[in-house]
Design a protein around this nucleic acid. Sequence first.
DNA 1: CGTGCTAATGATAATCGTTGTCAAAAGTAA
DNA 2: TTACTTTTGACAACGATTATCATTAGCACG
Lengths: 127, 127
Amino acid sequence: MRRKTWQRDAVRDELEQQSGFVSAQGLHATLVTQGTAIGLATVYRALADLASDGDADSLQSDDGETLYRACRTDSHHHHLICRQCGRTVEIEAAAVEKWARKVASDNSFTHEYHVIDIFGLCPDCAK
Amino acid sequence: MRRKTWQRDAVRDELEQQSGFVSAQGLHATLVTQGTAIGLATVYRALADLASDGDADSLQSDDGETLYRACRTDSHHHHLICRQCGRTVEIEAAAVEKWARKVASDNSFTHEYHVIDIFGLCPDCAK
DNA sequence: CGTGCTAATGATAATCGTTGTCAAAAGTAA
DNA sequence: TTACTTTTGACAACGATTATCATTAGCACG
């Protein structure tokens, strides 16, 4: 049985506050800076639980960190992210949304959600 | 100036021998088992060079390893993943690949790569 | 051929994200 | 309350990767 603790709530709330993907360490640092005394291991555990409950997406960044994002099934958007400076551009993806839903239903998968993000080098960092 | 060494050749040859993705450690182990005395750090460096030269693809596995594959542009694919049991279905995404590249170039981003994964509940887990 | 310069190697130490450990603290049902 | 059990958190441990640095060996060029 999963118990309700203020730590889990704090992690969930802070994750929902974030616009994009965050690392466990980053989220922990944010919480601590805000005056929330919470252990790093607890943040890792809370995020792992959120991800396995389907309340968060997770993916591996190219430098080996696990990144998390609050799972928004309603209105979510995608990002084009510069891997050098972190600059992001919001992108329209209606066609891809539809494609993702179709792939899922073609394979009889339900409760579909997806992680679609594009990375690259922005013009300024390309030189 | 990049010098030619038998170690780099050994890594490249062995990588081309492999059918799918391999980790640096795995490739090193294979080489050593075959009687090739080569250092682990050298394998890491050779693979990183191959990847940055565009001769190999690299990606992060879900357990945090960097995996390498000799570059074959026709075998890039994405996954439909059951978030309950982990069962995965490989999916073709040629149209989405093209879309991702277009989004990147429309915004003058170069060296594009993307994270596209679809999650859901497979038929068995849906009940 | 040497000879000199310097990139590459490899054993090992260091780093970094993450997970395991375990005693203490706190949620929950009675 | 009480009893039981999960969760927490400080810290140790772990595994993949990277840095260090003395040694080795490509690769011009004489």
